[in-house]
Amino acid sequence: MSKRIEINDLDVYYGSFKAVEGVSLEIEPRSVTAFIGPSGCGKSTVLRTINRMHEVIAGAYVDGEILLDGANLYGSGVDPVNVRRQIGMVFQRPNPFPTMTIRENVLAGVLLNNRRMSKSDQDDLVERSLRGANLWNEVKDRLGIPGSGLSGGQQQRLCIARAIAVSPDVLLMDEPCSALDPISTLAIEDLIEELKQEYTIVIVTHNMQQASRVSDKTAFFNIAGTGKPGKLIEYDETTRIFSNPSVQSTEDYVSGRFG
């Protein structure tokens, strides 16, 4: 269930403000792609356009197209709700539903689509998803406690379990480790390595070591100045971006010489 993403000449606007300009890139199935760049360069915005979550902000719209295995996500008659059911997302800070138990959190997305799931199917899915998120062994005896009772790293893996429970085609991660300690971060990175076997993963990160550790390809975004739109500067194999980039500003950024 892994699909290829193709972004063609994408501009993103917030009202009259042009946040991102002219982004084109192709993301292969079963790969990890990292978006890096300074704050405000539009990398999170581009990530959010892939499952149309940017539309949550009033006045946001895009120009250009994003193809998921050839189908335009912005075609007329495409319901953003259906787009989001195919493209899962993990957020910067862990956000399990505070009033739901661990089990209910995992099932939250599935039960939206399929209310008549039998109890044993639900049990299977909960176990499979939590195993998939490397969380099963830690929580199998307390599935009935609130999700907010877990540690930050566990909560984030619960959110990943919740996202993969609906078997999405693509998994988007918006700085998934920025609120976590190094050990939890390592656990998530190992998990990303495993999830890549089944999903197309796009990850936004501020941590360049992380990008070089987990990703196959890396996209570097930058802005010319405040108020200017963000642009895709360079998109290439991760090894190349970090060893021998073709653009000077990429080299400056990845080597820490960025102003």
């Binding site: 709700v81 259906n82 689509n113 959110c159």
Partner: peptide, 8 residues
């Protein structure tokens, strides 16, 4: 956003 991203 968590629920919207799940396709709610």
């Amino acid at each position: 956003e968590a629920s919207l991203a799940l396709g709610a």
